[in-house]
């Protein structure tokens, strides 16, 4: 097998005395969706934040295309084409959708000024694909609904030609129709060869969208399984009891 697109090897991080992530190893291949599962507080968000540059791991290594990389801050991650949809969405509430989508990567006029009109035009294009009902382009995003805010965060992650996409509960605030569109989007991006880490609580969605699932419990990795080898109950057992199903052993 070729080197994985991403490998997090033996990553650990602690907050004070709490080991939020404890020697976890997960990997991801191009065109693959890996589900990250676990109870609340299992350490899923903390793990992916080490990859997105929000946190720096206390121990462990990160490999991209088989090469060891240092990700010291979110800029490093973006430079490696890693895009993230955070659970908290990480939007500046006082700015409009376009300013948020391009935050840190503004389009610039030849004179060196931010080109709001061009950014709004691009935002209209991508939102037209992701959430055709979206109309609030002029309002600050605090005036948007939870789902509308989530679509802005999703648009920001997929706009910039990511190779590695991290989605931390991307559909938590979405209605059924919008959730369906995100599911289609994930399949489309997967077909384009992106690798996607998907944090998701809905087992049904995991079974439908993911190729493999890595389950965490209390900061530790329970194990990683091929989704087609296991049942919903097997995965639930891994999450709740923290034990690998017999068949996958």
């Amino acid at each position: 097998m070729t080197a994985p697109l991403v490998e997090l090897r033996n990553v650990s991080i602690a907050f004070g005395g709490i080991k939020a992530v404890d020697h976890v190893t997960v990997d991801l291949h191009p065109g693959e969706v890996v589900g990250l599962l676990g109870h609340n507080g299992a350490g899923k968000s903390t793990l992916i934040k080490c990859l997105s540059g929000a946190y720096q791991a206390d121990a462990g290594e990160i490999f991209i295309d088989g090469e060891k990389v240092e990700i010291k801050n979110p800029r490093d991650a973006r430079a490696l084409n890693i895009e993230t949809i955070y659970q908290t969405l990480a939007l500046a509430d006082n700015l409009d959708a376009a300013s948020n989508l391009f935050l840190g990567r503004e389009l610039i006029t030849p004179m060196g000024f931010v080109d709001d009109a061009a950014m709004e035009a691009e935002t209209r294009k991508i939102m037209g694909r992701l959430n055709p009902n979206f109309r609030k382009f002029k309002e600050p995003v605090k005036a948007l609904s939870g789902g509308q805010r989530q679509s802005v965060a999703i648009a920001r992650a997929v706009y910039f030609n990511a190779r590695i996409l991290i989605m931390d509960e991307p559909t938590a605030a979405l209605g059924p129709q919008e959730t369906q569109m995100v599911a289609e989007l994930i399949q489309e991006l997967k077909a384009q060869g992106l690798g996607i880490f998907l944090i998701e609580h809905d087992i049904h969605n995991v079974m439908k969208l993911c190729d493999r699932a890595s389950v965490m419990k209390n900061g530790q990795l329970v194990g990683t399984v091929d989704v087609k080898d296991v049942t919903d109950e097997d995965i639930l057992g891994m999450i709740i009891l923290g034990k690998m199903p017999d068949r996958a052993r």
């Binding site: 979110p74 908290t88 969405l89 509430d93 948020n100 935050l103 840190g104 000024f113």
Partner: peptide, 24 residues
């Protein structure tokens, strides 16, 4: 009309979001 100004407002609106967007 400048990135500098945009970042000031972004950091004031949500400092974490600004940081996660790669703004120093």
């Amino acid at each position: 009309r400048t990135r500098f100004g945009r970042y000031i407002f972004a950091a004031g609106g949500n400092p974490d979001a600004a940081e996660l967007s790669g703004i120093n």
